[in-house]
Amino acid sequence: MNNAVLTNISRFLLLLFIQGLILKRLSLGWEGIVYVNVMIYPLFILLMPLRTPRPVILLSAFALGIGVDLFYGTLGLHTSATVLTAYARSYVLAFMEPREGYNVNYSPTKARMGAPWFLRYASIMMGIHLIAYFSIDAFSPQFFFSIVIKALYTFLFSLFFIIIIMQLFNPTD
């Protein structure tokens, strides 16, 4: 139990700093041509243990979002998208539940659930997160087309990074 909490706290900090210090510069360099952003911090929400109470997920998502927003200087933007993603997580998990059900002591990782399942799970969650993020970024349904384009590019790059991270570290919980 303590171990899982420690793992998640360190994962929280690690993803926050990678996102805020490294990936932010990456996307800034390409701004102007195609608005490409790489977002891997939602991975923290994705990988939280299945038994985590929902209020804890929501509150940690809020904290993570505020942290990323402080780095990006867009207070509230990442926060609102991340809270929405965290709220959607249990519905996505219920929707994707395998026939034999979940083992509540596990986390929904690639090692536990298998690569195809994890890829689908990550795609749905990242899709929700990015559509939410770019909708709030544009803040008007008028920019629907540009929202979709930006979300699509960012989705491809972010998913690519997430797959690489999962391949490299392959955490079980």
């Binding site: 209020p55 509150l59 207070l75 509230g76 926060t79 929405l84």
Partner: peptide
């Protein structure tokens, strides 16, 4: 409770968005 907490946090986040971001 979960839904209310979600609404509260999302509300705070959106309030921050319109408060601190010029465009929004």
């Amino acid at each position: 409770g979960n839904f209310l907490l979600f609404l509260l946090l999302e509300g705070i986040a959106l309030l921050l968005v319109v408060q601190f971001n010029q465009k929004q």
